[in-house]
Design a protein around this nucleic acid. Structure first.
Lengths: 257, 257
DNA sequence: CTTGAGCCTGACCCGAGGTCAAGGTGCACC
DNA sequence: GGTGCACCTTGACCTCGGGTCAGGCTCAAG
């Protein structure tokens, strides 16, 4: 009567492959069992127990290099470490659940990149009558701002929400979008810049940015005026410059460049 | 005004390392963004979106090689594949939860190797007055039987549970254990073998093994008589041989060797 | 003008196994 | 007593998803 089970049976019992069992032997996690007359490994319950222990810990995400010392530690320490391993496992489970939620957002474009609050803002922008292109550009600016200043993003959103409550300001922004297609030397630009600056000064909340935000956004532009492509939009560049100049001369500190 | 965010900001936004972003570029998962005048990569919202998509799928366990085709598929197929990915993720979560439960069993030896039902059986064995050593040997036999014949294990347990209800049988088994220390030619062995065979014949249920079990256990011994170390226990070997002979002459089919 | 952080490429390294090759064993069936 | 066929042996190399290191460039601040 040959005593003990073969490597295949041991592997099946522990729920791993034969190769994995040999891997564990090679790394000293499970001692090599005795061999039968033909050189086959023969596993007894002690080795099976060890194998199940190793596999369970490995499957829980414990690196192989840590498993040996862990299993060889005295029972007290072992129990303590088990609690730790369980905690790590729980964290991983929670993370996977979070990933699954993110995955669901993936189906609907924006929601993968922006929090619900920002998506709501985009919807509001659309409802205010801005064109699809305008909304898309604004969306891009939101994504980039969030990437640039993750910590200040919530404060930024709050400021924009406030701005949207200022109907005169919204109207001016709409006119700025129209101005995009004017010639850079159109005389109405001067007029629009004056109105814009006055509105900013009348509602100073539009200008306040958190110090955190301010500190890091120097190279970027503030509020709704911030948008890329200015290189290709000389009219907008001129409008922005005029508004900035007017605000500065009214004593508002605005970073240059 | 430099447009777009740097690789570090993009990586932080997506929650990966810089190295990982470059890895994705190298494998064509995220297109290389344009570079600024100094050769730095500059990411726009399109690349950020793609990056978040890739990271989300990768974190959900989708192999990198599958992610490209998946994201480039038309929206309908994409949605379908997302469901599939989500299913895989759910499976993994469930598996991790199961692992966590197994981990808890690791603290208490037996429970990592044997189902609760088998542990209960061991406790019952102990309560019936068998010594700790006897219980330990029986435990080992249970583990090995489970490793050898995983599918037949439940049926085997059921049979043993029945056997334990047969008080005369239990008494005989206890006497067998005592016999272990007798000389191989002790005359009481003959007597004991006769009693054992009679009991088997009186309660045929003790002999029935599921065909599934039977088919694969030929090289092993049946029921409680099955235990290793017979090589070192000539007395037990003789007892077993006598019982088998008596059963065979009574017409019971027992595999040889 | 230096300092420190961030970026560039490229080559090699790592964990946890998987794959392939070339051969020995055990057993059932003809 | 062959002959499959599944299973076992060792050893060398491969894979995936990155990490690490080296050597050099760029940028903003003090």
């Amino acid at each position: 009567m040959t005593i003990g089970v073969t490597i295949g049976q041991a592997a099946a019992f522990a729920g791993v492959t034969i190769k994995t069992v040999r891997h564990y032997h090679k790394h000293g996690l499970v001692e090599e069992p005795r061999r039968d007359s033909s050189g086959y490994r023969r596993y007894g319950s002690a080795e099976l127990l060890r194998l199940v222990q190793v596999r369970t810990l490995a499957a829980a995400g414990v690196p192989l290099a840590e498993i040996g010392p862990l299993l060889d530690a005295d029972p007290e320490r072992f129990a303590g470490m088990l609690v730790d391993v369980e905690q790590r496992l729980t964290d991983r489970i929670d993370e996977l659940i979070a990933r699954r939620d993110t995955l669901r957002r993936l189906a609907g474009g924006d929601r993968a990149l922006l929090p619900d609050r920002a998506c709501a803002l985009l919807n509001r922008t659309a409802a205010l009558g801005f064109t699809a292109e305008q909304v898309a550009i604004y969306r891009e600016s939101l994504v980039l701002v969030r990437a640039l200043v993750p910590d200040g993003f919530d404060a930024y959103l709050a400021q924009v929400e406030d701005a949207f409550d200022d109907t005169r300001f919204v109207e001016l922004v709409r006119r700025c979008w129209v101005a995009k297609d004017w010639e850079p030397d159109d005389s109405r630009i001067e007029e629009l810049a004056t109105a814009m600056a006055e509105q900013f000064l009348a509602n100073r909340a539009l200008l306040t940015v958190s110090s955190d935000f301010q500190a890091r956004i120097d190279t970027t532009r503030y509020g709704l005026l911030n948008h890329f492509g200015e290189d290709h939009e000389p009219t907008m560049a001129r409008l922005t410059a005029l508004v900035e100049a007017k605000l500065r001369s009214a004593g508002v500190r605005i970073p240059h460049q």
